[in-house]
Every structure is written in C-alpha cells, then in structure tokens.
Design a protein around this nucleic acid. Sequence first.
DNA 1: TAGTTATGTAACCAACTTTGTTACGATATG
DNA 2: CATATCGTAACAAAGTTGGTTACATAACTA
Lengths: 144, 144
Amino acid sequence: MTGNSRFAVSVHVIAYLAYKAGAPVTSAEIAASVDTNPVVIRRLLSALVKARLVTGHKGVGGGFGMASAPANITLLDIYRAVEPQPDHGLERFSPNHKCPVGARIEIILRTAFFKAQTSMEAELARISLEDVHRQIKPVCTGKR
Amino acid sequence: MTGNSRFAVSVHVIAYLAYKAGAPVTSAEIAASVDTNPVVIRRLLSALVKARLVTGHKGVGGGFGMASAPANITLLDIYRAVEPQPDHGLERFSPNHKCPVGARIEIILRTAFFKAQTSMEAELARISLEDVHRQIKPVCTGKR
DNA sequence: TAGTTATGTAACCAACTTTGTTACGATATG
DNA sequence: CATATCGTAACAAAGTTGGTTACATAACTA
C-alpha cells in the first residue's frame, strides 16, 4: 500500500469526462463514479485545470469538461499534472561526503533514477486518452 | 519528499561493500558512510542477504560482504530485493463498478502501469554494480 | 568456558503523507 | 435574489518511514 492514488484517480476522472463528452460534469457526479468525496475530485481537477487538460465552470449548470480531444492527451500529461517530480528517496539521503562512496553515490543515483524515470515516462506518453476511451466505449454501445 | 529511501540507501550499501571488497564490513561502518543508524542498515542488509546479493556473518571479525562479483549484480536486483511490488495507488482504488468507466478503468490502469514499470525496470537492469563501482574507484586510486 | 563482538529483530516514537470530511467564501445562472 | 457549483482552508484518522533502544543469538579468541 505504498504511494498515492492521485494519478490513478486522475486518469479515471479524465476518462469519465471523455465518456460524458459534451455536457459539463459536476465533481459530485465524478465522485460517485470513483466512489470518493467530491472535494477529493475537485482537488485533482484543480491541478488538471491548471495544466490545461480540463476546463471548469462555476454556478448553476457548471461543471468540468475536456479541454482538448482525447487523442491529444497522454497519460504522461496527466501524470505530470498531478504528481510532483519523484525524488526516489534522495531528498532524505545525505551520506557522509568524507567517504569516497558517500561523496560520489548521489550523482550516480541521480543519473540512474533519471534514466529509469525517463524510460517510464516514455511509456506513459505512448498511451493516449483515446486509447483509454476506446476500451471503455464498447461496454456502452456495441454488444446487443 | 515522496517515497522512501530504501533503494537509494541499499545501492549505497552494496557500493560500499564493493569498495571494501575482501574484508568483512560491519553495519556500524556502513552506517557511518550513509550517516544513519546501524539498525537501519541491518534491516536493509537482511533483505539483501535473503536475496543472495550479500553474505553476512556474526561474531568477532564478522560483518558483510558481496555474494558475487559486481558485474553480476544489477540495480534491478537490488531494487527487487528491497522494494515491494509497487501498486501505483491501485490498492486504495475501488471505483464504482456500476459505472461503465469504473467497471473498466482498473484493468486499463493495471495494463498501463505494468508497461511503465517494466520499462523502468529494464533501465535499472542495464546498470550493473560494476558500472557504479567504476565511478567511485577513481577518487581513491588515480589522479596523482 | 568466559568475555567480547556483531548480527537479527521486535517494539516504540516522532515526523510526514494521504485521504476523507466539514465548512465556507466566491462566482455564475436564471 | 436564490441556487448550484467550484475553490480551498482546516482538521482528523490511518498508514508509512526512519531513527532509537533493547535484547536474544551466534561466532570468535584467549
């Protein structure tokens, strides 16, 4: 049970917006789909709006909607919008620089983590919201 | 300050063992290099011994040492030894399955996370402890 | 065998993170 | 003006992490 669910929930949220494309969707409605509190959803949507992935409107008849076509949004866009830069534990890692190992290990680890992270992000960039949406649609339309 | 430092510290620990190759090294000595408590080091070493990356001996003249040549150990071996399988937040994510999005999103996310994780691990597998050791050695030997 | 050194691990604590919740102000609609 | 909705602060409960103490176990030395 390590880490947080912000990214997972955010993908769900945007997938829901794509699913309900057109009409504005309230945080309460999305919360019902995710099974959580509307404030949790609004917190994430706040970050997604700042990243220009989503638009939001207050007041009667307000709610949220996609800011662009699903084909133009990747999972990496969502990941970057809601997750801080991972530090892989280097924040709380300050070895003894008087030891040759302690003096050099940080830059070595930074380099390794950067490669690993870059590779992971490239994989997320290969998946678009359209890919996600395509796997949800059939349940509602096809099959009769 | 997200995540933990187990992997980072573990790489430091094994790099230190490689650096001190031959003689057994105590948890207290490693702790001085990492700048933490010996128990923290022994906790990680316990996992590394179980993964057969490291050997340990009790008693006078005891301590830890590498179980194989640095060329035969990759960062992925260390990662798997000390980190649990990441769940990317799916553990605490149980959407409403009555909603078509909630019903399908879990498997979609699982697939995406698996690809991302696999890609990241492949990158860690490309870095051996010998690569790490090579970047530490020069400080102690060369340059005169 | 006694004394010393070192590991193995349990128990506990403080600090931090994460999520859910209440509350309330701001804003848009009609 | 009344209502719906967002935006965000404040707080609590539960879990994670790293540091610390404590002590049992094991191995070496004399």
